[in-house]
Design a protein around this nucleic acid. Structure first.
Lengths: 336, 336
DNA sequence: CTGAAAGCGCTAACAG
DNA sequence: CTGTTAGCGCTTTCAG
């Protein structure tokens, strides 16, 4: 069996407490004793049992991360940002996949709570977070941060993107590029998808253009959906000459459909996505996109959590909305 | 505070043990008592404290996953396969990013061991696993499976791809497509990169072609590296007319360099990658690739671990080498 | 079928 | 500076 503090204590003829303190570099231990303890610990390749420690300190140095799909690079980037900020402080992350399934999400969260993680980061698959929220979270027993999917209630920590602005930036850009009929391939029914739609609509209005629902197609979450939605738009008597896609995978699928139809991107139809996914630059046509700072979202969530850990009072209700940034590549560049 | 078993016991006027057994559905509890306990537990929204349980059962239902880069979709896919297989059995995964850094990898593993995870899955960034392997792993105290990067020693569980075959399939394909000068952009210094090189070399030999080291460039791990390596190859007096790239990101970077140089893919230079990453089909030029069954790798590793958990004896030394599969897309299709 | 005793490995609080 | 006492919340073992 692995060495315990007790073993070190017996070997050295000191008490268990002395060992415990020496190992944690408490000040009230003589230089000499500390040395002896540390040396013996090294010899035995001693590692403290974090489970036992957690049981008494009530800190696990574990953060639960609940996301719908690790394979969607947006979430992989968030998770990376998160653990990059957390790791230097000794935290590790338990990553749970909810598969976009509200029920599974719930049970994963319960298990994480059973494990007494110090905090949670959740991209919820719930349609309305309010009703399904597990008790301990509702009661503010444990700090948690929602990301990406914005909660429909106040008082909750949230990190995401200014989604109206995402829609507005993209739409404005397409109009500036001379597009006459700007379409939208919208994502799932989540609140933040709705907000992008809103930014799209407002920008059209600003330019005194009518919002034509024929130009709003539903695209699901991935390239498959984007492909189908684009084909649908291409079937209109007056197909669009610019499309804002809810995310980059959707945009990639749309481009595929357009090229297959014998049209050119951006000359016939300009395309812009959102997310600035890692390989957007290498796609069929280098993809213009709206950068959401996905890594930054993870980093910010990490900071929120660590602030909560170090503050006894409940800081709930902090919100950071990252400012989206237009990234112009070939798929939408018509001028110059 | 959250409810404890003790609370339930007191409320019901039974002993703590009765509660413990009832909750775990032990058979030696009367139907009636069990009902009472379960009901009260539900009322109090009781969740067992897994930390306390772990301390005594010595099982955490936690699996450590150590990978170099979550943002590389190959690893995201492995992680997904892993947790998909593990979750139904009540396991969760602690994911640690090693950032391709051997030292960080080591400390993350130590921490996972301190947490007493039940097992580990590691894509090691160590040049030679043998020497740096943490003690408890060396002594077989805890089950672990290496993935992707093959260990240079026997007796270790490993799940990966038949890497010689990856190299051979790709090279053979390029030759079949009529390439005269087949180059290789190799990955990092890991054993499996070496093995792909070997498959490449053997296939050249089989066709009585000389192995010209000018045609072997070093590409790092990502698209940046692929871009640079390709530019280097393009600088040769006799540039290659076919390139096998160690992975898809590298291939994507190489394609970028080639197109920028005013050459065509595949007409001037045919390209094939490896990994069959999710969006390979949507790249600049749809990318031919060698599928490594990344999700399957995760699933298999999960099964290895669970077998180990359920068997007292050490099963070490199991190896699964998945058979790679050629996926031909446009980037290498010259005939027909 | 039920419960009392003992302890997992560690730390907080306080006494010497 | 060092050690003693008393748990953390649960399970294992064994006696009633």
């Amino acid at each position: 069996m692995a060495a315990r503090m007790k073993d070190i204590a017996e070997d050295l003829g000191v008490s268990l407490m002395t060992v415990s303190k020496a190992l944690r570099l408490h000040s009230d231990i003589s230089e000499q004793t500390r040395e002896r303890v540390l040396r013996r610990a090294r010899e035995l390749d001693f590692q403290p049992n974090l489970i036992a420690r957690s049981l008494v300190t009530r800190r696990t140095y574990l953060v639960g991360v609940v996301i719908p799909d690790l394979m969607h690079s947006f979430f992989a980037e968030v998770a990376t940002g998160l653990s990059r900020r957390l790791a230097p402080h000794g935290y590790q992350t338990v990553v749970a996949n909810s598969d976009e399934n509200a029920e599974l999400e719930g049970s994963q969260i319960e298990m994480l709570l059973s494990r007494h993680v110090d905090g949670l980061v959740i991209a919820s698959a719930q349609e309305n977070w309010q009703s399904r929220m597990p008790g301990p979270l509702r009661e503010g027993k444990i700090p948690y941060v929602l990301i990406d999917r914005m909660p429909d209630m106040a008082g909750i920590d949230y990190v995401g993107t200014r989604d109206e602005e995402v829609g507005a930036l993209a739409t404005e850009h397409l109009i500036q590029q001379g597009c006459r009929r700007v379409a939208l391939i919208r994502g799932p029914g989540t609140p933040n998808a709705r907000r992008r739609l809103q930014g799209y609509a407002e920008t059209l209005a600003k330019h005194r253009r009518a919002l034509d629902l024929n130009y709003v197609a539903v695209g699901g979450c991935d390239d498959e959906g984007g492909y189908r939605a684009a084909r649908q738009l291409l079937g209109l008597k007056q197909p669009p000459d610019g499309i804002f896609c809810h995310n980059d995978p959707i945009a990639a699928g749309a481009i595929k459909a357009i090229l297959e139809a014998g049209l050119r991107v951006p000359q016939d139809i300009a395309i812009i996505g959102a997310g600035n996914v890692r390989y957007s630059d290498l796609l069929r046509v280098p993809l213009s996109t709206i950068d959401q700072g996905s890594t930054k979202i993870g980093e910010t969530a990490a900071e929120f959590l660590m602030e909560s850990f170090n503050s006894k009072s409940n800081l709930g209700g902090r919100t950071v909305l990252l400012e989206p940034r237009l990234v112009v590549r070939e798929s939408s560049r018509r001028s110059g």
